[in-house]
Design a binder for these strands. Structure first.
Lengths: 133, 133
DNA sequence: CTATACGTTTACGTTAACGTAAAGATATCG
DNA sequence: CGATATCTTTACGTTAACGTAAACGTATAG
């Protein structure tokens, strides 16, 4: 096994700075069971794995997922201890998720097109406005 | 002018049914100034224009926009009474919005890829599970 | 006539996702 | 030693986006 994997760790404010969230937010995610950092006495110690999880949570957030949903997403990445029923449930969730994503893609395409049109109307209105004066 | 444009109208529950929201939701949007239906006595009457606006609001919602943001989007579609400064502000908002959309597109692409991988891992885990029994 | 369906206003309740403040431990710098 | 920075827990506050319930008109079908 390649032991050059740097076992880097982070403080709570390291992560807060990197991802531009407050420490309160990170602790809140821990309350919800989304993160389980190590401890050095009282102080929280975050591993690279925790960092990845936080990244996942924030990406989910940008896509409009709730924390509960993000937790599900995170759990998808480690289906090691599951029985077949749980795995089937997971597959269903994955498919549902994909449907939502496809809907969002379609929405975004439509909206982008309409934003282009809105911009064009804006420009034209400005032209008219200028040529009047 | 072509007068075959049907001036169709809708009741509040017509729209509620069509878009699968409650009437409370539609009235709430009106409270926020997002819709301004006509009235027949007490009863609200919705035009095709109102219907389009509602559609915009709900699409915005699917994309994670707040109602305040959706209101801005709606206002983009009628920049008739604006002066040049307002139009410039509008253009800026449009560009901001587009940036967010591009970020969402990138997020979705990444996530779709990861969902594919998660599904694959799921399937393999199920295979192993089955071949053991 | 009355029951049923649909509309209205008013108003308090709820949930998620944090914000904010208080009060204290620990460590390091000068 | 005191100031400053960074961490902690505890706990109440806040905002958005509705839900839910009460109490009341209106009209139409049986």
């Amino acid at each position: 096994m390649d032991e050059r994997k740097r076992k880097q760790t982070y403080s709570i404010s390291d992560l807060a700075r990197e991802f531009d969230v407050t420490t309160r937010t990170i602790r809140f995610y821990e309350e919800g069971g989304l993160l389980q950092p190590l401890r050095d006495g009282q102080t929280r110690i975050y591993t690279d794995e925790d960092r990845v999880k936080l990244k996942l949570i924030l990406r989910g957030k940008r896509l409009g997922f709730s924390l509960a949903e993000s937790r599900e997403l995170i759990e998808m990445y480690d289906p090691s201890e599951g029985n077949i029923k749980q795995l089937n449930a997971l597959l269903n969730k994955i498919h549902q998720r994909r449907d939502v994503l496809m809907q969002q893609l379609a929405d975004i395409e439509v909206m982008r097109h309409e934003l282009d049109e809105a911009e064009e109307r804006c420009r034209q209105a400005m032209q008219e406005c200028l040529s009047v004066n």
